[in-house]
Nucleic acid binder design. Structure first.
Length: 572
DNA sequence: GCCGTTTTCGGCCCGACTGTTTTCAGTCG
C-alpha cells in the first residue's frame, strides 16, 4: 500500500499538536505544520520521489531531519518519534485541542490539574463544574466549552465554493446597504477561488460611526455570535458556515485586502520581504517606522516589496513570489478566452434538454461550438447510447448543423473506459465522431496499478481524445480513485491525449495542482462543463477559476481555439 | 525544525477579541 502525501502530512500535524501540548518551541511546531501543508500541496507523491532517488530536503520547509522522517514513514508505514510522543501525551488531547477556545496551553493545564485525556473527560469535568476552578479558567470558559461540545461537528467541514457563494454574496450585498459602508468585499480563500472554503472573510471599509458590525451580527441567517468587537466580528450562520467581518479605514483597504485574502503562507513571505526592507506590513498598511508608505491598494503593497501585483488565485506560496520576482507570472486564462465546450449531455442519455436547446444555450454564451457527449451504453443508469442510437444522434447533429447559425455542434460521446481498458463502443462508430470524451464510471476500486494500466491502455486507442474527470473525485463526498496521475500525465503528453478539467463545482477534476503539473509537462487541457442542462454551461467559470489556480494560460486549453484550429488540435 | 547577497547561529508575521486578570495570557485567523 503506497504512502500518500496526505498520510505523511496527517502524521506531521499530529506531531505538531502533541509537541504543542508538551510546550515545545513554537517554531519547531510550525516547522511540522509548514511541512504538512507543503506535502498536501505537493502534486507529486513524496514516496515516488524517494523511489526516483530525489533528495526530499530540496523541498521547501524540509531539512535533513524531516526528509529522514518522511523516508521512515514511506519505508515502514510508521514513525518512531510519533509513537514515542503518543506514550508521553495522551492522543485524546489532540481532540481536546480541536475544541474552539481550547489551545495547547489550556489542554495541558486541564490534563495536569484534572487529568483530562479525552473529549469524554472534558465534558464530564465541565458538567461537574470543575473546570471553572482551574486557574486561568472561569465560569464563562466552562460554558463555552460545553457549548462547543454540543455544537461540535456542525460546520467544521469545508464548504464547496458554489454553496459558499450563495450565502456569501447575499450577505455581502446586505452589508453594502448599511449606512456609512463604502465597500464590502469577500476576501480569504473565497477570493483565491479555492474549491472549498473553511469560512467566509468579509472586509468592509466604512465611515467611523457606521453600525456595520451591529448590523452584521443581526443578519437573519446568523445562528451564533462568536465574537463582536469594534473592528472585527465572527458569527456562525444557520448552515454552519463561519463568517468573519473585518472593518478597516479606507486608506488601509489595499493592505487589509491583501492581508485577509491570504494565503497565510503567501502573506508571511511578503511580510518577510518587507522586513528585509525595514518595512512593517500589516492589515493597516505598509509602514516605515511610524510612517505609512502604502496601503490604499494591493498594487501599492506589492510595489513596496518590489513585486508586481499577484493574482489572488496564485497566492499559495507555490512559486508565485519567485515567478513575480523574475517577471515570469503566467498570463492566466480568462472566461472570455473560452470559445466552446467539449463535454455536454442531452435527453438522449441523462441530460434534460434537446440538441437544439443546448445549441442555443451555448450560442447565447458567446461560444462557437458545443460537443454533444452523451454517455455510452455501459452506463445503463444514465440510459447510455449504443452504436445504433449514437449513429442516429450523429445523423441528427449533421442535419441540425445545416440549420444552425453561429454555433456548431460537435459529434462526440462520453465513452466508458471498461475495466480492461477497452472502449465501450466499436471503432467504426467512434471513427465517425469529431472527438471522444472518455471516462471511468465503474470499477473504481481497482488497485492503483490496475486502474492506471486501464487508463493508459484506453489512451492508446487511436480514437481517444479527452480523458474526462480523470480522478473521479466528488469534492467532500468521494475520494479520487487510486490512480498514478503522474503516469497518466506523462502518457497524455506522449500520445497527444487531452486531460479534462471538469468544471462541475463538485468535481473540479483535475484539481489545481494537477492542472499545473499537466501544464508544466506540456499536456493540453479541456475545460468541460459536463452540462446536463442549459444552466450548467455556466459552470465554465468554476473550471476557469480552478485552471487559473493551476497557472493555466489560454494556450494550454484546447477549447480556447477557434473551431478550425480545434479540429486540427484534435488530430492525434 | 528550517533557513541563510546580514549562513552554520539566531532569528522565525502580526494584531483583535475574550475572559480572566487588574495588566495580560491564550486563542484565533
Amino acid at each position: 500500500m503506497p504512502v500518500h502525501n496526505g498520510d505523511i502530512a496527517a502524521r506531521f500535524e499530529e506531531i505538531a499538536d502533541l509537541l504543542e501540548i508538551e510546550g515545545a518551541n513554537a517554531f519547531r511546531v510550525r516547522a511540522y505544520r509548514n511541512a504538512a501543508r507543503m506535502l498536501r500541496d505537493l502534486p507529486q507523491s513524496a514516496a515516488s520521489m524517494l523511489e526516483d532517488g530525489k533528495d526530499l530536503s530540496d523541498l521547501p520547509g524540509i531539512g535533513e531531519d524531516l526528509a529522514g522522517k518522511i523516508a521512515e514513514i514511506v519505508k515502514t508505514g510508521s514513525l518512531s518519534q510519533l509513537d514515542a510522543l503518543e506514550k508521553e501525551v495522551p492522543a485524546g488531547l489532540t481532540e481536546v485541542v480541536a475544541i474552539p477556545g481550547i489551545g495547547p496551553k489550556r489542554a495541558h493545564a486541564l490534563h495536569e490539574t484534572l487529568d483530562v485525556t479525552s473529549l469524554a473527560d472534558l465534558e464530564q469535568a465541565a458538567r461537574s463544574g470543575r473546570i471553572r476552578e482551574v486557574p486561568g479558567f472561569g465560569r464563562k470558559t466552562e460554558q463555552n466549552i460545553l457549548h462547543a461540545l454540543e455544537t461540535r461537528g456542525s460546520g467544521k467541514t469545508r464548504t464547496r465554493l458554489r454553496e459558499a457563494e450563495e450565502v456569501a454574496e447575499a450577505l455581502v450585498e446586505w452589508l453594502r446597504e448599511v449606512d456609512g459602508v463604502h465597500r464590502a468585499t469577500i476576501a480569504g480563500s473565497y477570493r483565491r477561488r479555492r474549491e472549498t472554503v473553511g469560512d467566509i472573510d468579509i472586509l468592509a471599509t466604512c465611515a467611523r460611526d457606521s453600525p456595520v458590525v451591529d448590523r452584521f451580527v443581526a443578519y437573519e441567517d446568523v445562528r451564533d455570535i462568536v465574537s463582536q468587537g469594534r473592528t472585527r466580528s465572527t458569527v456562525i450562520l444557520k448552515n454552519g458556515l463561519q463568517v468573519d467581518l473585518r472593518v478597516v479605514a479606507r486608506v488601509a483597504y489595499g493592505a487589509a485586502l491583501h492581508y485577509f485574502t491570504g494565503s497565510k503562507a503567501h502573506n508571511i513571505r511578503v511580510r518577510r520581504m518587507g522586513q528585509d526592507r525595514q518595512l512593517k506590513i500589516n492589515e493597516y498598511g505598509v509602514f516605515r517606522g511610524k510612517k505609512r508608505v502604502a496601503g490604499r491598494t494591493e498594487e501599492e503593497v506589492y510595489e513596496q516589496v518590489g513585486l508586481p501585483w499577484i493574482d489572488p488565485v496564485l497566492r499559495e506560496d507555490r512559486g508565485e513570489i519567485e515567478a513575480a520576482q523574475k517577471h515570469k507570472l503566467p498570463e492566466l486564462i480568462r472566461l472570455d478566452d473560452i470559445r466552446g465546450n467539449l463535454h455536454s449531455h442531452t435527453k438522449a442519455s441523462d441530460g434534460t434538454r434537446t440538441l437544439a436547446q443546448m445549441a442555443a444555450a451555448a450560442k447565447a454564451r458567446g461560444w462557437s461550438y458545443l460537443a454533444i457527449s452523451d454517455h455510452s451504453k455501459a452506463v445503463t443508469v444514465a440510459n447510455g447510447l449504443d452504436a445504433e442510437r449514437l449513429a442516429e444522434q450523429i445523423d441528427a447533429i449533421d442535419a441540425l448543423n445545416e440549420e444552425l447559425d453561429g454555433i456548431t455542434l460537435l459529434k462526440s460521446c462520453e465513452v466508458d473506459i471498461l475495466a480492461d481498458g477497452s472502449l465501450d463502443l466499436p471503432d467504426d462508430i467512434l471513427a465517425r465522431l469529431d472527438l471522444t470524451v472518455c471516462a471511468v464510471h465503474s470499477h473504481m476500486d481497482l488497485s492503483r496499478d490496475k486502474q492506471t494500466e486501464r487508463v493508459l491502455k484506453a489512451m492508446d486507442h487511436p480514437c481517444f481524445n479527452i480523458m474526462a474527470h480523470p480522478t473521479g473525485r466528488l469534492i467532500g463526498t468521494r475520494e479520487p480513485y487510486p490512480l498514478d496521475i503522474e503516469r497518466v500525465i506523462e502518457h497524455a503528453r506522449d500520445t497527444g491525449c487531452i486531460l479534462e478539467l471538469n468544471a462541475q463545482p463538485d468535481r473540479l477534476d483535475l484539481d489545481d495542482g494537477h492542472c499545473k503539473m499537466a501544464r508544466d509537462s506540456g499536456v493540453r487541457l479541456s475545460i468541460g462543463t459536463d452540462a446536463h442542462a442549459e444552466a450548467h454551461l455556466d459552470f465554465m467559470r468554476y473550471g476557469v477559476d480552478q485552471a487559473r489556480r493551476g497557472w493555466v494560460e489560454a494556450a494550454d486549453v484546447v477549447n480556447t481555439l477557434e473551431l478550425d484550429k480545434l479540429r486540427k488540435a484534435l488530430a492525434r
